[in-house]
Amino acid sequence: MTRLLIRACRREPVERTPIWLMRQAGRYMSVYRAVRERHGFLQMVKQPDVAAEVTLQPIEAFGMDAAIIFADILPPLEGLGLQLTFEKGEGPVIHNPIRVPADIAALRPYEPEAVSGYTLEALRIVRAALPETTALFGFSGAPFTLASYAIEGGGSREYRRTKIMMYRDPASWQTLMTKLTDLVVAYLIAQVQAGADVVQIFDSWAGALSPGDFAEYVLPYVQRAVAETRAATGVPIVYFGTDMNGMLPLLRATGADVLGLDWRIRLADGWAQYGYDVAVQGNLDPTTLHAPWPEIERRAKAILDQAAGRPGHIFNVGHGIITETPEEHVARLVEFVQNYRYAGEA
C-alpha cells in the first residue's frame, strides 16, 4: 500500500488532500513542553527515544498524514569539525565559523552513522511505531543554508560574510558547497535507509539571494543533491525555502518532486509558475492559526479550492508553527483538511 502523502508527492490520484505541518512537533504542544522541561534542545535531538517520542506526539494527538523526525539541520555540521551550541535567547552558535580557505580545507568528511546515528535510530523507532498509512519525513538543510550558518557563525540578517565569500572567492565557495552537498546527499540517503519514505531539503535562507545569485551560486548544488538522492533512494524529494517567490521558475529547475510555497503568494499563482507537472506544498500563514476558527477555516478552504482538485497538493503551513498556537486550532485544521472535498469533485 502506498501512503496517501507519497501518492500526492508523485501526483497520483488521491481521495483527499494530505496534510502535515512544519514544526508540528514543538513548543505549542503541552506534552512537548513537559519533555522540554527535562532536557536541553540538543539533548532531545541526540537521545533517540526522546526524539522519537516528540516526533510521535502530534500524530497521536492530531493524526496528520505524515510525521517529520524531530531533529535540526545543524548538528550534522559537527561531523565536519564545527562546534555547535544552542544559546538561550541567541539560538544556534557555531564557535569556530568558516572564514578563510584553510577552515574549509580542515573540514572532515561527513559519516552519517558515526555523526548522526541518534537521528537514524530515532527514525527506525518512529517507523516501527507509526500507523502504516502515515508517511515519515527525513530532512536536511540545503547546502546554501548550511554554508550560511557555518560562515556567519549563526543566524544573520544580511548574510554579508556569506555573500562576500561567494563574490570574492568563488573557488573557496565551490569547495565548501561541494563538501556540504556531499553531506546533504549522504545524510538523506542514510535517513531513507533508516525508514524515511520522503525527504525535505530546507533552504531557509536562500530567499536572501537575488534570482541571479541563486542560479549561479546555489542552484547547481541543489540539483546535484536532488539528483543523487533520488538515484540512490527513489523516494520523493521536497524542496522548501521562504521569501523565494520572485524566483519560482528557477526552483522548478531543482528537479524536486514537490516544491514548497510560503504564504506570500497565492497557491494557484505559485503552482502556475512552477508548472502543474510538479506537486506543491503549502501554504497557510502560520500566524493564521492564532485567529478565530471561522477565519482559519475560510483561509484553509481558499487554499484547497485554489488547488482545484488537481493531484499533487500537500496542505501545510508556509513556515513552522508558531509558539503558543492553540492546540485546538491545529486539531480542527487537520480534521477540516482531511474531510474537505473540492466543490468540483463528483
Rank of each mutant, 00 (worst) to 15 (best):
Q174E: 15
V185K: 00
F214S: 05
A186H: 10
V218N: 00
M177I: 02
R230N: 09
F240R: 03
A186N: 09
Y221Q: 02
A194Y: 04
E216H: 15
A206Q: 07
S210P: 11
W173H: 03
Y217C: 14
A208D: 05
G207I: 00
D182I: 06
S204D: 12
G195V: 08
V199K: 02
S204G: 15
A227M: 05
A206T: 15
L188C: 12
D203T: 03
I189T: 13
V185N: 01
G195K: 00
L209S: 04
A231C: 09
V198I: 15
E228W: 09
G207V: 00
A196S: 12
D197P: 08
I189C: 10
Q191N: 10
A208M: 14
Y217P: 14
V199D: 11
A196D: 08
T178N: 02
Q200Y: 04
A196R: 06
E228A: 05
V198G: 07
A196N: 09
D213T: 07
A231R: 14
A215D: 15
Y187C: 09
Q223F: 12
L183E: 01
A206G: 02
T178A: 05
Q174S: 13
D182E: 13
G212E: 15
P211D: 14
F202M: 07
R224E: 07
V238F: 14
A231S: 11
W173F: 03
V199W: 08
W205C: 05
V222T: 14
F240K: 04
P211I: 12
A232K: 06
A227R: 11
A225N: 04
Y187W: 14
W205I: 13
G234E: 14
S210G: 15
L188R: 13
I189R: 11
F202V: 04
A194S: 14
F214Q: 01
T175G: 10
Q223T: 11
L183C: 01
R224H: 12
R224N: 13
D182C: 11
F214K: 00
A227P: 11
F214N: 05
Y239K: 13
E228Y: 03
A215T: 11
G195T: 06
D203L: 03
Y221F: 15
V218L: 03
V198K: 03
L188V: 07
Y187N: 13
T181Y: 02
I189G: 10
R230Q: 12
V226A: 04
